[in-house]
């Protein structure tokens, strides 16, 4: 056990865990930030995506020690009022079915939109192929990302 200092969604936390504990389980079990999901544990499905220094890392294989002292953003902190363009677009397009994978989808899409503000379908597919949706909402995810791009452009 060791104390690891974390900055998550702008708030400082100190957690007393084995430094090799994956960030996912620190978020879920120790900090009660359960929007980040466990899907496979081997970085294969994308349900656990969070932003570490702005990158869409898979928290299930990211040791908490790697996140120490760095900026971590989870779905709960993506926007202050739940109104990130992607969250608005997801609502408007009514993307989710079961909803379990969607926070990971949104966190991945956020990095895409930051780097390519107006992505094509092909660019969306390239960026989102790492996130499995078992319900098959991929078409709506595509549509919502396009809509979020529009919303983002309007805000700018």
């Amino acid at each position: 056990m060791a104390t690891t200092k974390l900055k998550i969604n702008g708030k400082e936390h100190a957690v007393d865990v084995d430094p090799s504990t994956p960030l996912l389980w620190v978020l879920r079990d120790h900090l009660n930030l359960v929007g980040t999901k466990y899907g496979c544990g081997v970085a294969s499905c994308g349900a656990c995506v969070v932003h570490l220094e702005g990158e869409a890392v898979r928290s299930c294989v990211t040791k908490v020690s790697r996140a120490a002292g760095k900026e971590v953003v989870t779905i709960e902190g993506l926007s202050e009022n739940g109104d990130h363009p992607l969250q608005q677009a997801w609502e408007q397009v009514d993307v989710p079915q079961c909803g379990y994978c969607q926070s990971g989808q949104i966190m991945s899409a956020a990095v895409l939109l930051r780097e390519i503000p107006n992505p094509t379908d092909e660019e969306i597919d390239l960026a989102m192929t790492g996130n499995i949706c078992r319900c098959g909402t991929y078409l709506r995810i595509r549509k919502a990302i396009h809509l979020a791009a529009e919303i983002q452009n309007e805000i700018k």
Binding site: V34, G35, I75, W90, D94, P96, Q102
Partner: peptide, 13 residues
């Protein structure tokens, strides 16, 4: 719209 969509996109438990 799905009555839970807001909760889903905000990562609510």
């Amino acid at each position: 719209k799905n009555v839970d969509v807001k909760n889903i996109v905000n990562g609510k438990p």
